[in-house]
Design a protein around this nucleic acid. Structure first.
Lengths: 364, 364
DNA sequence: GCGAAAAATGTTACCGATATCATTCCGCGT
DNA sequence: ACGCGGAATGATATCGGTAACATTTTTCGC
């Protein structure tokens, strides 16, 4: 803590020596013009304020280490010169970049947005910034992460748990705190915040069964996590003796249009279908539109369940029954774990399961 | 260009002097174990490969400056040691950070997501990464940008044109290429990619008038850009002699719930309302839901127009009439302008107007 | 009033890459 | 055979902060 200013006389320790430079007086010392023209450095500020560079550094990053009077003087000079500390230089020396990198498969039209927002906001509270990486559903994750590592992030957020062995090795070797998210595994690279897609699938299946639907069709994406949900769903059906479910697969990311096509495909098989499970809400929305067009009443003729609780899901008509995830919590908790580890704390629970909720609405 | 390898004998220029160190032989030089344990630096790689640090630097960033044989040797060492260049150090010296910062008011539930995605992807193509800043609708933009400037970004993307004089000054002084987006002004800080909100508002008004609606109510957000759209809308109405329009204002970001309340408020005024213009699609969706609940047929009893062409807008029933913006184009073009300026090219057209389209659907 | 501990400030070196300039080597024309 | 020019590589200084340690000043107990 700083001492009370009143107890410390304003006189400086050493009287300015009668050097060739103008003596550093109290109010009107070196002017801005005396300083190098273009980029103001910490040494420029130091010179004008009549202190050493390290004192300026302290005044800006740990003001409590500096006399109130010194602090005020330095702040004035900073304001006057428009000095902006070069974070690159500081990070290089201190080995703390105050950057956390986040890797997402894609952001438009996905649920990750809410996680990103929560992640970024929580990080900012502690003075960290988010470096955004888009991996295009895994296609270029390796290259991306290699590039990110060179930026010396203090922490890394990854979407999902499927990474190349090479990337895993690199990340573990880097010693940087890592959170994997949106999935669950007993063996994360480091930490993990997510939920079980298998169990989500099971819950979707059970919900349909409980509502009395046994003839289930699937309109489904082929990405890794969707695939796990599918396995869960199939096993829930199997537990009730339902051996198979007609499926219309499609590439990620899922779209409304794909949902329409999906239902058309399913109906074209001629098999009896009373309910359609979708790997995400946009697909469900498409299925609903296609059903309506074909004169099928929902849920009377056809039930639909989605996944993700997208913003629109509660507001379609009928509103979509879906599975809700606390997306913001994932981002927030991930940020907090990373920050804790960056502060050097041990994180006891390496794996956090945020769970999920089946939200029954009008389509089942 | 490198000479053909065949023309250059594999022997190195200077025979390794009989120094105390082991002579650097062709295949089996210094082993990994000889190198410092923890962070592999460029000098470690250089030593193992038997070249100088700068040659390694060249091999990695401008391979054409190095013999094919040298390149191969260095690449092998890099792979073997798992060397990751410290970008911070390189950036500090070269004054190129290969980072572009983007500032957005918020991302969840907004249109900016598509722009972010396009921006990030285009930047990545040129080896740049996106540093994401959330300004919470302007509340902390100043502080945020001050922090960003210290990271020495090579370019800056800003949402909107309303910035504090302090921020404007700082940005102009920094000499960093800046693109402002999602708005239009003849006097940008540097470059601009956007569209005229005033004209959007006018177009919305004209559309309603053309469809025969003269009793117009507004459910509107209070952020800067929405306000400009409102002015445009009002002036279009005024041009047809309509002096006033009942308005239910609300804070940004706009939500479905706010839309419902908004319509309730408008109807409570008792004034005659045949059409509701909304400052964004989520509001429109809420208005539609509230209208349905009150037994109002759309568009027969009440017409609705939104803004933004959100993902869901085409898929509600009835589908929402709205104003579409090419959000991805904004991001892409912004990235390209920034990259061009970073490369040192002059950008002739400082201001790009991407325009907009009124998309008539089922609600008008 | 003295000495030890704490507070405030300073000196120096260093983080790890690359810009700059220097040097060496080789091919080729005359 | 010689000299020139370009290709390949190297030595050194430097970017702008901060860690680590040193020094000076102040406070405070007895």
């Amino acid at each position: 803590m700083a001492r009370k200013p009143s107890q410390r006389p304003p006189s400086r320790r050493k009287a300015p020596p009668p050097a060739p430079q103008a003596p550093v007086a109290a109010r009107k010392p070196v002017t801005i013009r005396d300083v190098a023209r273009k980029p103001v450095t910490i040494r420029d500020v130091a010179k004008v304020a009549g202190v050493s560079a390290i004192t300026v550094s302290r005044a800006l990053s740990r003001p409590e280490l500096v006399t109130a009077e010194t602090l005020a003087r330095i702040q004035a000079v900073v304001a006057r010169t428009g000095y902006v500390p070069n974070v690159l230089a500081g990070s290089l020396r201190s080995r703390r970049s105050r950057i956390v990198a986040g890797v997402f498969p894609q952001i438009s039209n996905t649920l990750f947005v809410d996680t990103i927002q929560a992640l970024a906001e929580r990080l900012r509270q502690d003075g960290y910034q988010l470096l955004l990486g888009l991996s295009a559903y895994g296609a270029r994750e390796d290259e991306l992460i290699a590039g990110i590592l060179g930026r010396q992030p203090d922490g890394i957020y990854l979407t999902g748990i499927s990474h190349s062995p090479e990337t895993r090795r690199r990340l573990m070797a880097s010693q940087i705190p890592v959170v994997e998210a949106w999935d669950l595994t007993p063996t994360p690279i480091d930490m993990l915040v997510g939920f079980s897609h298998t169990r989500v699938g099971e819950a979707m299946g059970r919900h349909l069964l409980e509502r009395g639907y046994r003839d289930v069709g699937l309109v489904w994406s082929t990405d890794v996590r969707a695939e796990m949900r599918r396995q869960g769903l199939l096993s829930a059906l199997a537990a009730e003796g339902i051996a198979e479910a007609p499926t219309s697969p499609g590439p990620a990311p899922a779209t409304f249009q794909r949902g329409r096509e999906g239902l058309a495909e399913l109906l074209a098989t001629g098999k009896r279908i009373r309910a359609v499970a979708c790997s995400s809400d946009p697909l469900a929305q498409g299925v609903i539109a296609e059903a309506r067009e074909r004169g099928l009443a929902i849920p009377r003729d056809l039930a639909v369940i989605g996944f993700g609780d997208f913003d629109f899901a509660a507001y379609t008509s009928p509103a979509i029954t879906t599975v809700a995830i606390d997306k913001a919590a994932i981002g927030r908790v991930a940020a907090e774990r990373l920050l804790a580890r960056i502060r050097g704390e041990e994180v006891a629970e390496k794996v956090v399961d945020v769970g999920f909720t089946v939200v029954r609405r009008g389509t089942t």
